[in-house]
Design a protein around this nucleic acid. Structure first.
Lengths: 229, 229
DNA sequence: TGTTATTTAATGACTGGTCAGTCATTAATT
DNA sequence: AATTAATGACTGACCAGTCATTAAATAACA
């Protein structure tokens, strides 16, 4: 997936293709919030929170600044909504995916990492960690919300899987919380990298990165050392 | 090491301990630049670049705002100096450490990771990655400088070590650049975490994190699978 | 050695520009 | 005709950077 945004860029059409639209603007109450959040996500990612101007968010969303304030209280509330609306559904999906699963624990772990990568790492959601981390000092409530509702739940997913593998004897005896963090670190780091220094580096992260990460982690976890996959 | 700063907090002493210092301020041409950079590093880390006020940098450095501009051109030049002055010497030290080394490659790798952790991860230098990443969109030249002078050199250090291990037959056949990134990711991620969301999390990163990371990496690299250290 | 002149580190009130948020007005829709 | 989505000029706060002024340090001189 490329960085293509969800924002309409046909917001202002002056072409004479359809002569029956000389109206200066349209009422689109339902579509606005999503478009605003999409525009904000894009700009927050690129510039950070402080350096993003509300005029620019409005422009990218195809509306005026005043309209922003019909839908959101403040700049900060947009920031909060971006995180809340876009992340929460994902976490829930992961939680139910695990609840449903029945099979070898190493397969579950492999599948969870891969799914996370395709559903978060390769989508626009990947921008959120960078934004939250960058602004954590200025927006403590947001940071706290993110830690409680995203980080801890994600950490628990991985910790539970590893614990299960240890208990069933499939995995070596390890400290599940520490290993959970070592699994997540390269994943989140890759998303932060993509949205910060990657554009300044001519060396791209290949798919091999994730594949090798999975391979290394499983090699240390699985007792019976088959050197496959 | 605690977050203790290098800033003098005795900058304004009104106590009557030494009655012969009623002078309103002191000339300290030599000490100022370092104090300014220390103050700036602390505030940039906490608030990010944009949200840090020059008045606050001055206050923390124990001087007035005007004095800042006797020593630095602009806010941005302070930012640049922070990165340049503090990071460059470290990288050079690592490069010479490797040049000097002669012994088993896995020991060198282990030592490099540990040294990085004590010289960067556990010091105030650990704040720099977070700052650079947060502001990369607004300060492209700084980001480029950082990628060219820090990231690439660090990446090369690790890539060279791994290549050497593969060539000598000590390590399994792996893609050195990919593995180098997987080694660095949890390290840098830990520093970013410390300076962003750690304060909102009751669960601390233990020393076990680094130890386990080293153990996992070496287990995947070393051919002869002894299950020690 | 004490007094005065010169140099320059340090100050902080001020300016000019920026931008989040407001609100009276306009016009699309019902 | 009534309702309300949308507008954009405006305001008040904030802050990076300036510069005329102050005074610490040092040199020159008596």
């Amino acid at each position: 997936m490329t960085g293509q945004s969800l924002i309409q860029d046909d917001a202002m059409v002056f072409s004479a293709s359809t002569p029956e639209t000389p109206s200066r603007w349209k009422r689109r109450k339902e579509a606005r919030p999503e478009e605003i959040l999409g525009a904000a996500l894009e700009l927050f990612t690129e510039k950070g929170f402080a350096a993003t101007r509300m005029d620019d968010v409005a422009k990218l969303a195809g509306i005026s600044k005043g309209t922003l304030y019909n839908y959101f209280e403040s700049k900060e509330s947009i920031f909060h909504a971006v995180v809340q609306e876009l992340i929460a559904p994902q976490i829930e999906e992961f939680e139910s995916m695990i609840a449903r699963y029945d099979g070898p624990t190493d397969h579950l772990l492999r599948q969870l990492i891969r799914t996370w990568w395709t559903r978060v790492g390769e989508t626009r959601l990947s921008a959120i960690p960078k934004i939250v981390i960058s602004e954590s000092g200025n927006f403590p409530e947001l940071a706290q919300y993110f830690v409680d509702n995203v980080v801890k739940r994600a950490r628990k997913l991985f910790t539970d899987i590893i614990s299960k593998g240890v208990v069933t004897g499939e995995f070596n005896t390890v400290e599940p919380r520490t290993v959970a963090r070592l699994i997540v670190a390269p994943l989140v780091y890759a998303t932060i990298w993509q949205h910060s220094l990657q554009p300044f580096d001519d060396d791209y992260l290949s798919d091999e990165y994730i594949d090798t990460h999975i391979k290394f982690i499983l090699r240390s976890l699985i007792k019976d050392q088959r050197i496959d996959l």
